[in-house]
């Protein structure tokens, strides 16, 4: 535990020394919310079931934070540590090298939560956004979605030969996903073709779960989301287990 705490503290330190990580993880989604909210306001819209645009965007934008940390910064951190043979160096110490991966997971996860929290704060203060759900349900929805997404990130780290490849693959997943899953623009407003595309993308169910948490839907309404996210988790972790290399 002493080692894990020290490793995690160190990863936090490194996170805050990386300007781009701080910007993308902590501030990017809030800036996006300011832009979208500025353009569209938060007036209730019939197409959005009577909710305002900002109300709908907040939980959706959480998916952006989860995707940035899950499939970009987390896998890049892991593959960078492997590329620099840092993982290998720690293998020659009494601790389990899994602790390094775990510390990188913790830092990305905690910082993504901070980014999501900032998003809510900005929404509340600037646009007087409404939260209709239960805080703990919301947190649970966030954790489930994030863990499922991070397993795909671990898979990206596993199949990438180096950190450059991880960056490319991560962005290749992240960029289309934020548009196709309704994370940037609500699915309700998309034409039927796009709605059907969204349906086959697993992360859409993460956006749906986050929305459910935000608008206070009953847990029972999200059985499909849970099942899809569980399958994603099993596939992501499974492929990682077989393909991950420490050096």
């Amino acid at each position: 535990m002493k080692a894990l705490a020290a490793l995690t503290k160190n990863e936090f330190r490194l996170f805050f020394r990386s300007t781009s990580s701080v910007f993308y993880v902590l501030f990017f989604s809030s800036i996006l919310l300011l832009i979208f909210g500025g353009m569209l306001g938060n007036k209730p819209m019939a197409q959005l079931g009577g909710y305002g645009m900002v109300d709908v965007e907040i939980p959706s934008f959480m998916m952006i934070v989860i995707l940035i940390t899950g499939v970009v910064t987390f896998p890049v951190d892991v593959s960078m540590a492997r590329e620099k043979k840092i993982l290998k160096r720690f293998m020659a110490t009494p601790i389990s090298p899994f602790q390094i991966l775990f510390s990188q997971f913790i830092v990305n996860f905690v910082m993504s939560m901070a980014g999501a929290f900032l998003l809510v704060v900005v929404g509340k203060i600037v646009f007087n956004a409404n939260f209709y759900g239960n805080t703990w349900t919301m947190v649970m929805a966030y954790i489930v979605t994030a863990i499922s997404t991070y397993s795909i990130g671990l898979m990206v780290a596993s199949i990438s030969p180096n950190s450059k490849a991880a960056t490319v693959i991560g962005n290749f997943i992240y960029l289309p996903m934020i548009f196709l899953t309704g994370a940037v623009y609500p699915i309700q407003l998309m034409p039927p073709v796009m709605k059907n595309i969204a349906k086959v993308i697993p992360f859409t169910y993460g956006v749906d779960l986050l929305n459910g948490g935000w608008f206070g839907s009953k847990i029972g309404d999200f059985t499909v989301d849970f099942i899809v996210l569980a399958i994603v988790f099993i596939v992501g972790t499974g492929i990682s287990l077989f393909t991950f290399k420490w050096e």
Partner: peptide
Amino acid sequence: QLQETSYQDKI
């Protein structure tokens, strides 16, 4: 000491 180990740049 391993051959070619580097450490994080910003540590």
